[in-house]
Amino acid sequence: MEQQRVTVTGCTLSLRRGGSGEPLLYLHGANGAPVELPFMTALAGDFDLLVPEHPGYGASDDPEWLDTIQDLAYFYLDFIKHLGLEGVHLAGSSMGGWIALEMAVRNTAAIRTLTLSAPAGIHLKGVPKGDLFMWSPEETLRNLLHDPQMAEDAIAAMPEGLEADPVFLKNRSTAAKLLWSPRLYNPHLYKWLHRIDVPTLIVWGREDKLLPVAYAEAFAKLIPGAETAILDHCGHLPYLEQAGRFVELLRGHVARETAGREKAGAAPKVNP
């Protein structure tokens, strides 16, 4: 994938883009997307994959106007328009899934499908979430990954002095701004999830310690026609812990939408 700079609404983003096919916009979670991961390489084989670093993250600008997840939702609707993308397959993990949901309740004109991996965004009373802001980097990996060996390997591979790394600190600060309160949700989002009118797949690790799997069922009830895929032996990050399975699920979801569209002979949704 190629590294690019793109300026939208006065904010310059660091964008990783690669592959060809229908556009797939992947929105990363709270910890950012500093490197190309195997699932991205795999998806770039089927799609024109776009992985931006969010405003306030990594090498992207930290704009004055950024205060909430809703700001990012409007921003990425602008981003799609600015790049002239149509029929976008929109995917996101955790916080990125929440941004995707906030976009979809606003406007799905340019969105063809949604694939959400353990998205934040709503709150279930009495279902405690993990407190990611109390976790050290080591605890974070142990809590997000179900496979203890994988967690220990990731800890061993952690760069020296991570906690003093300016990009790590910038990402954490932006995450705190967007997620701290109300913690990982928008109290009004659930009321409008019925507006989502594109095929939606919800992927969840059964052993998720940040957002318990009970949320998958809640989202499935709130989003019309949403399908769920619950992964055994998997924590909060299916794209990392079960990358192959995650890619396969996303491809399958898109393929079903494509088949449905072809069968119906429908014109692309962008120009109904």
Partner: peptide, 14 residues
């Protein structure tokens, strides 16, 4: 206290 408690993200400049 743990550093995560003492210095939550964004509490002081980078």
């Amino acid at each position: 206290m743990p550093i995560e408690m003492l210095l939550p993200p964004g509490y002081t400049s980078v």
